[in-house]
């Protein structure tokens, strides 16, 4: 979706405010939101979680802090999956008579689970269409659902630098339509191809792009 989250190339969003020696969490509630998001039964689909945050209306998305967005996205996903009701969220108490679940993640298991290496790579079912050195054009698509193809490269020509293997396709997985893994490529774009003649002649921008985002150029 062409949402406020897709902000690569925008001007006017203010100065960067580097912080040194900042704490990991600035407020204890941020730590709780982070932990609840990691422990929630909704955590299993990272793409759905990202998309839920993208669905925050643009003006709110730009105004909210990072963990406000996480909290909003988590509540929305919990409601969507029927894991909590609006009344429960408002009251801070479970509706009477509801069966108690068993948490997926116990405290003793946390360090092991968080440090275990998973993978988003899947066995390839097709041969990659592109090889390093191939010129490719990023698709001009404007889906209203989740995509990881930013607007600023759509229609632009780049060069494949490597194939990462077949990876879970977020545009499908985010909507519960299956992992639909397809080859994922590192693609290099010249700054001038993306931003025009005023850009640096030597700077480059690289993105990881799925095969269906790309066509031969």
């Amino acid at each position: 979706m062409n949402g406020a989250h897709d902000m690569g190339g925008m001007h006017g969003l203010g100065p960067i405010a580097p912080e040194t020696d900042a704490p990991v969490f600035h407020h204890s509630w941020e730590a709780r939101v982070h932990a609840m998001t990691m422990a929630s039964p909704t955590r299993s689909n990272i793409d759905a979680g990202r998309h839920q945050r993208e669905l925050i209306p643009g003006p709110d998305y730009l105004r909210m802090s990072y963990y406000e967005k996480w909290l909003t996205g988590l509540c929305a996903l919990l409601l969507k999956h029927g894991l909590v009701t609006p009344d429960e969220l408002a009251r801070g108490q479970p509706d009477p008579g509801r069966a108690r679940a068993t948490p997926l993640l116990a405290a003793a298991a946390v360090p092991g689970v968080l440090s275990r290496a998973g993978s988003y790579e899947r066995e390839a079912t097709t041969r990659p269409e592109f090889v390093p050195g191939d010129r490719v054009r990023a698709a001009n698509i404007n889906p209203t659902g989740h995509t990881r193809l930013p607007r600023y490269v759509r229609g632009r020509i780049g060069v494949v630098e490597r194939c990462h293997g077949a990876h879970v396709f977020p545009d499908s997985n985010a909507h519960g339509q299956g992992e639909a893994a397809q080859p994922l490529y590192l693609v290099r774009f010249e700054a001038r191809e993306l931003w025009g003649a005023d850009a640096s002649a030597i700077d480059t921008i690289r993105l990881d792009l799925w095969e269906s985002y790309l066509a031969p150029a």
């Binding site: 969490f25 730590a31 709780r32 982070h34 932990a35 609840m36 990691m38 422990a39 929630s40 039964p41 919990l78 894991l83 909590v84 429960e88 108490q93 479970p94 509801r98 108690r100 679940a101 068993t102 948490p103 993640l105 116990a106 405290a107 003793a108 298991a109 946390v110 360090p111 968080l114």
Partner: peptide, 14 residues
């Protein structure tokens, strides 16, 4: 309360 997350697990994640 609903058993969807464990409070001590949240502490461990933090």
């Amino acid at each position: 309360e609903k058993g969807l997350v464990d409070s001590a697990a949240l502490d461990a994640i933090v």
